[in-house]
Every structure is written in structure tokens, then in C-alpha cells.
Design a binder for these strands. Structure first.
Lengths: 143, 143
DNA sequence: TTCCTTGCAAACGATTTGCATTGGA
DNA sequence: TCCAATGCAAATCGTTTGCAAGGAA
């Protein structure tokens, strides 16, 4: 079992939450994906063997445990991705035509610039904790 | 009538769309707001005089006309804001506790850095057209 | 008249929840 | 045994749409 799986299992264990087959299926599907995935998209990957309600419950449990993060940049649907402590920090390329979302990582010198920008921007009463650069445009397929 | 109103009216006119009282109410409410607003929030501002369906239809018309932009960073709801050609370019402070979203403008030297970062990041097959830095954290009220 | 806009109510669709059952520790 | 996890069906709720009435050009 990969180290990533171990990390997830440990995190869940610490919170008294089981790492069941459904939950593992969700985690591995998201680990394979190159961007956030909706419940429907995950169901395509995993198969109908997982009932809709169980899928949503798994997503909720994993989110509350800090394993998944919801990405809200899509109309009508919530797409989930692995939390950044698992997947690493990244940004998003959002296609304005088909709505697909893809992850991008930026070179660390660039990233540290972004980080300091963020620190500077949110000056006053707002406490910044995380950030994403959402880049909207047209993906290869829709170009 | 303000110049902003004129711009909106002209834009709608070019597309053969009327600038009705409902639509104007939506636009002025968003012009007053300091961040994106959902249908429910707008209805609080405007009053129940506007039926839900008319509100949603107004939002749709204004979005299609390029007057409004949907902000999708909120669970369950779509919040709209004036398009950037009206309101100017800005970023968002999203509170992870209460979900409120506030606009922030960054100094233009900083902004041009961000712009060049974006150009660099989306190198390959993806064509960047716009971007927002979504900064998640805790707002003053929730601190 | 003609077409766009409006309002009400019904329809949609993604997500959530009640409840009885199953399964692991 | 005991409590978390599961599955099905029913319920939610934001949003959309059908259709008939109202209004502007």
C-alpha cells in the first residue's frame, strides 16, 4: 500500500473513522485524477456499485476529516480533490466552455511570489489561510 | 443617471435587450455590494416585490449580455457580481466559516506581476483569458 | 400586432436525510 | 454487543421552465 494511502488511513484512524472500501475507492479515484471530480464523475470511474447516497456520505466524511477539499468553481456541482497536504499545493485551469478543471503546479520561486502577494493583499482584518489562482480560459479540446 | 448605468443600458441596447426596472434593481444592488451576491441575498436587498423566477431570469439575461459574472466559489449558491469591464479587476477574500465573499483590489504593480505569472503558468495548450486569486481565510466577524 | 417580459406554479436535479439493516472491532 | 457504515427511498432546496397574461414598440 502506498504511503499516501497510509497517510489517509492514519488521519482517519486518529479521528475514529474507518477506511472502508467505498472511501478508499473515492480516494484512489481522486488520486488518479488530474483535477477535481464531481460525484457523478467519480461514479463513472468507480462504477454504480456505490449507491449515490453512500458516495455523498463518503465525500462528506472525507471532507470533514480533512482528506478532501471541495472545489466550488463549477456550476451546479461540487467537485472534490485531495487536500493539499496530500496532493501538494497547486492552482486551477478552468475551461469556460466545457467547465473542466485541471490542476497546475507552478515553479516554487513563482509560488513564493504568489504567497507574498497574498500576505500583502489581505492586509487588514482578514486572516488568509490558503489561496488558489483560478485561471479561466479555453482548454485544448475546446480551443 | 450615472455613467455606469449608461454603459449597461447601451450594452443591453446593442443586443436588443431592455433595461427594465427589475434588471436595473439587480444591477444597482450589485453596484452597491462589496462582493458577489446570491439570488437570496439580492432578494433581501431588493425586496419580495421581485418574484424568484423573475430574479433568476434577470440574472440569466444580464449574465448572457456580459453585464454580470457568476462567482462559483460558494457552496450551493451562485453569487453574481458586475462584470470586470464595469467594476474593475479584483480578487476575492472568501471566509471559510461564514462563506461570505469580499472583493479586494491589488496595487497595479502587484497586479501586473500576477498577470505575468498567469501568462507563464498556463503555458501549453490552455489559453488563459481571465484569472482570480481566491484567498480563503477568516473574515473579521468570524475571527 | 408582434415580440419581449412577467408571474405563478410545476418541474428539475444535485445533494441530503430518515430509517431499518449490515458488518466490523 | 455496540456503534459506525450502508442502501434504499423520500425529502430538500436552489434553480429552471411551461404557459398564460401584461407591456412596450
Amino acid at each position: 500500500m502506498s504511503s499516501m494511502e497510509d497517510q489517509v488511513r492514519r488521519r482517519l484512524g486518529e479521528r475514529g473513522v474507518r477506511y472502508t472500501p467505498h472511501r478508499r475507492a473515492v480516494v484512489t479515484a481522486l488520486a488518479r485524477a488530474d483535477g477535481p471530480r464531481s460525484a457523478a464523475e467519480l461514479r463513472d470511474d468507480i462504477g454504480d456499485s456505490i449507491p449515490v447516497s453512500s458516495l455523498y456520505r463518503s465525500l462528506g466524511v472525507l471532507e470533514r476529516a480533512g482528506v478532501l477539499t471541495p472545489h466550488l468553481g463549477s456550476r451546479d456541482v461540487i467537485r472534490y480533490e485531495l487536500a493539499e497536504w496530500i496532493s501538494g499545493h497547486h492552482h486551477h485551469l478552468v475551461c469556460i466552455d466545457c467547465g473542466s478543471v485541471e490542476d497546475v503546479t507552478v515553479p516554487s520561486p513563482v509560488e513564493s511570489e504568489v504567497r507574498s502577494l497574498v500576505a500583502g493583499i489581505a492586509g487588514g482584518s482578514f486572516t488568509p489561510l490558503a489561496h488558489t489562482l483560478e485561471i479561466e480560459g479555453r482548454c485544448a479540446r475546446c480551443a
